[in-house]
Design a protein around this nucleic acid. Structure first.
Lengths: 240, 240
DNA sequence: CGCTGGATTGACTCGGATCAAGTCGAGTGG
DNA sequence: CCACTCGACTTGATCCGAGTCAATCCAGCG
């Protein structure tokens, strides 16, 4: 049975059979969650590290006004901050988007892995650095990109991440995110997002429908987004 | 001689005399940099970890259009990602804002410290988690806050961070950031930022001039910002 | 003392928000 | 099998926050 977390981590640094076994053991008893279920809420005391094995989740914040800002999308293989247990309180919530299979790693186990398994620790730190890079890209998008560029950029990011874990076929992949959720991630209104998606569709760039994204003109999408193809993958130092 | 980095780190976890000595040694040969000098550029191979001892710096990205997005402000005591050396290439640049005193910690030294000094490692991980929290707050600001709220929120953040390291007097502190730089951080135009600052000044909330921020009505500033006072400090788990 | 880069202000434009109706499709129950 | 409902998606009309363009103003300084 595939473990998408191990698959992903393994891409960052070569792991020994015992490393893999150790990770497999740590994530061997995942739990099933329904869609739209909070795994942890803002204000909660952080517990174990969450690892998404199947399905999608997101980090988000709710503002006093009631507005929601999605901070990150988590797809199979993703996990949350390694040292999260050091904080007294979550500053954001994490919620499933689709039904999901989620493993948890307790703090001591996590610490033990990071201490004793250097290769695993290295791979996981790299993964975390990539996630930070994604956050920086989001800040850049929200601050300095027009809405159509922002949408295109996010789609590039999600496509590449999905491809990295083998979830794409050709230039298409399952993207189970409602327009409302995407709008909350992109800092725009659902109405305007809808218009932007229409424009992208009419220009023959990409089509998002029935939970699936089809990129009809990758070059154009990348050009609209001003996407730096290096940003998610080639930046990683090859085994040093 | 005060070492603002140690002062800051020490607030996160109790350190032994030997821990402090070790950090002091690691940052004992800082270098002076002029203002507006890149410490490292996007595309560069990451080197040592930078530690700002005196002065201000910022992380930023330049878009193909030439627009700049500032990703973070670094003040005395701040340092960049601990595991930065794992990446093949920087995805952003770091530049001094004012003349600055910057120490560097080589990769092996950093690894050794994180390995052997558990208290130091813990404190530094907490510091990094706080920085990540700040990034999430920035994403939230850019996505879901009006410009005046965004400005107020950033000022609250900077004030608190400055206060934490003892750089404030009453409700005032040195803020050597030009309106242009602030605009690039807030995702707005300098012209509009100027108007927002004027509005905040006229409403008796705060005044930013000649490199110094004076908060005349803290309660009002917090209220405009929708600032969660917990977000930078009380979230830290007290020595566990 | 003129130069230069930031700060300030005004006039005008525009991207995206808001408000308000629909439309469409998957369930659900009669 | 069809009416009913509910949530997500669409579309049109209008408004407004923030961007753009273009002058000044001003302080530090070579």
């Amino acid at each position: 049975m595939a473990n998408r977390f191990i698959d992903k981590i393994e891409r960052f640094a070569p792991l020994g059979a015992d490393d893999i076994e150790c990770l497999a053991a740590a994530t061997s008893t995942p739990r099933k969650f329904a869609a739209r279920r909070d795994l942890i809420r803002e204000g909660d005391r952080p517990g174990p590290v969450f690892v998404i094995l199947e399905g999608w989740a997101c980090r988000y914040k709710i503002l006093p006004s009631g507005a929601r800002q999605v901070l990150a999308f988590m797809m199979p293989g993703d996990c949350c901050d390694l040292h999260i247990a050091l904080l007294a309180e979550m500053d954001h919530s994490i919620q499933t988007i689709t039904p999901a299979l989620v493993a948890t790693i307790e703090r001591q186990d996590m610490d033990a892995i990071l201490d004793e398994r250097r290769a695993v620790a290295k791979a996981m730190y790299m993964s975390q650095l990539v996630d930070e890079g994604i956050m920086r890209a989001w800040i850049t998008s929200m601050g300095r990109r027009q809405s159509i560029e922002r949408v295109a950029h996010l789609m590039c990011e999600l496509y590449l991440r999905a491809r990295n874990i083998g979830l794409t076929t050709e230039s298409q992949f399952a993207l189970p995110l409602s327009q409302l959720l995407l709008a909350d991630a992109l800092g725009m209104t659902p109405v305007h997002l809808n218009r932007v998606l229409k424009a992208l569709r009419l220009s023959g760039t990409m089509t998002l429908e029935r939970g699936s994204l089809l990129i009809t003109d990758p070059a154009k999408l990348i050009q609209i987004a001003g996407f730096d193809e290096n940003y998610l993958h080639r930046r990683l130092r090859v085994a040093s």
